[in-house]
Design a protein around this nucleic acid. Structure first.
Lengths: 210, 210
DNA sequence: GTCCAAATCACCCATCTGGGTAATGGTATG
DNA sequence: CATACCATTACCCAGATGGGTGATTTGGAC
């Protein structure tokens, strides 16, 4: 059982007060030890390999490299690392993004010690601490597989969308029917989690898809 | 009248043959004198102040700093300078861009002497030598004034658009009616020369407006 | 050989969008 | 004070969009 050994935890949090508070709660609890703390994602990335924690608590909103951006980099250093996000409110957008990057769950800052410890033990036992609404979104998202990767055809359509081209014209440009274009657009929306051309274009540009 | 004195002309043209030809035509004509010639925009920028021409003939397609790029810099050195572009074919895109930068007209290389002299005298008299199609584009473009600068409110609406928010929701967010939002969007479209949300968003992001 | 995803196409329908036209009050700028 | 621009609102209308459901074909993965 995991209870037979001490769970090593590292924390990345720019707010010194919150960090101290978390550290105290965890160190006082049976079976947990905070073995490293960092004030930035950059610092964590540089020193993670020296700590090899079982769990990493990662602030979602860090200055510089954000928590979300840091996830893939941290995972690269220690692939099996359990990353748990720290967030003020459970804003589904950000948390969702973090989970998609590889975080296993999240904890809300300022919760009770009991809640925090329960969340971490949940992670150690292979669980994923999160609210029901987030859980639902995750299920819905990962069920249709496809990891936000658009097909070549979809990217092609997306580029047309960004130029303000309408379905009819796109259909003519690509030598297919407007129904096909509609089908592609629907798939793009599903994959990008958007509901309009404008939103799809924004997301695509900001993600560098087009 | 302008006919009472000699019109000083400078020419920027990288093709030596064309430059010589222009120089000859103008020097032989009554009332005109080519007082300086340059093979590049860089050379013109360095020496313009020594010449103070009435008219500058500027090749649109120069190596290094292009004719179009040179316009604002030349204008900075001599604000009231009449810049006339020299172009091989009257490609509306380039000519249009030049006019937007402050050129007063353009002449097609290889035209007859009569045409060239007429164009330059037109400039001196406050006219703008250009083809009807270019003229129409210019009218259409400069009529709605406001040089792609959006008002604060419009930027606000644009940001909502980029999030895929629909008119009704934007209206609620900004505490106004949907009709107002529609009006703002129409104005945004006019200013950005676009016809859809997706296109507006693309342009706005690429221009750094949002 | 079977399964699956990608690409193709169809039909329906409520709602939204884009474009045209017009008007009002407020606030600068001249 | 007049003109200009901004923000605001209204009405109309054709056409486009977003969403739901369902189907076929083809080519690669297992």
């Amino acid at each position: 059982m995991t209870q037979n050994r001490i769970i090593k935890i590292c924390i990345v949090e720019d707010d010194a007060l919150i960090l101290k508070s978390l550290q105290m709660v965890l160190n006082q609890a049976e079976g947990y030890a905070v073995t490293g703390t960092f004030f930035s994602a950059e610092a964590a990335l540089e020193n993670l390999k020296e700590h090899h924690p079982d769990v990493l608590l990662l602030d979602i909103d860090l200055p510089g490299i954000s928590g979300i951006e840091a996830i893939p980099r941290l995972k690269k250093l220690q692939p099996e690392l359990n990353i748990v996000m720290l967030t003020v409110h459970d804003e589904s957008e950000l948390v969702f993004a973090a989970l998609r990057k590889g975080a296993v769950g999240y904890l809300v800052k300022g919760s009770t010690s009991k809640y925090l410890l329960q969340g971490i033990s949940e992670v150690i036992e292979g669980g994923a601490p999160m609210s029901p609404s987030i859980a639902r979104a995750v299920i819905a998202s990962f069920a249709p597989k496809t990891e936000t990767v658009l097909t070549d055809r979809e990217v092609e359509v997306l580029e047309k969308l960004s130029n303000g081209t309408n379905n009819k014209q796109i259909a003519e440009d690509l030598f297919v029917s407007t129904n096909t274009i509609k089908a592609h657009i629907k798939n793009i929306y599903k994959k990008l989690h958007v509901h309009s051309r404008a939103e799809a274009v924004t997301k695509a540009i900001k993600k560098g898809l087009i």
